[in-house]
Amino acid sequence: MDFLLASLSDGLLIGFIYGIAAMGLSLIFGVMDVINLAHGPVIALGMFSLYLLYSVLGLHPYFGLVIVAVVGLLLGMIMYAIVVRRVIDAPHLSSLLATFAVNMVIIGLGTAVFSTAPYNVDFSLGRFSVGPVTLIATRVIGALVAILVTIGLYIFLYKSRPGRYIRAVANNKTAAELVGVPSNFILALSFGIGTMLAALAGALIATFFPFTILAGGTYELKSFVIVVLGGLGNPVGALVGGLILGLIEGIIPTFMETTWVPVVEFVMFVMILLVRPTGLFGAKQ
């Protein structure tokens, strides 16, 4: 029982972080109908940025997060300006391949600089106990940061002017342009926020797991699963999807080998696509 509780709480905590990575993917899909295959490498860049800021420059990791967020935002806007802008109205194949090309460029350069060896951010805040469960502090803080980011995103999307513009463009680009929404900037901003979320997720993961330049790929695939769970283009659904995935990852090891986790995840992924492509919460058509 205690083992189950520990496993579940671990899963839930990491689920929040999966959630924000997936939110980024989902936001980009919702606003511009692009599946960003460069999401994984951006997650990896988030990990390595934090590594550089902490291990090389000696900054506090949670202060480093702020810088990672800014860098992620700018990187995304640049990616949008150079690449995504040109394929946004092209068939899906073009946007898939264009973002995959960005993926190759980042991974290629990343491998040249960091090789594919594992790195880790040597940082710990110890553990503490809540009743029968012992929690790792960095994971708890990671989850809290993820929650804060989600709340922030929610307020931004629903209360701020650019946020409302983003939702307007997601809803109907042509109509939004007609009423004077600067859609190109808004699209760039959305893409920037999407990659920012990915970079943040990467940085948070780096505070408690070792990583390689290729590690982002795994989290990208998890993001796909989550996004499909929560409904493509539905950022709030993505957070819930992240929690569900975290819980599944927490529960499965209590009764079968951990190696079965991806089998369950991907079978579920395909099944949901087939049975309910709008996601479990069926938000957006």
Binding site: I35, F224, W260, P262, V267, F269, V270, L274, P277
Partner: peptide, 21 residues
Amino acid sequence: GAYFALATIGVNMAVLSFISN
């Protein structure tokens, strides 16, 4: 469209992880 593309990625990963087990 994109849903089919995603599903094929999922199928590949599902088969890969199944065979690993």
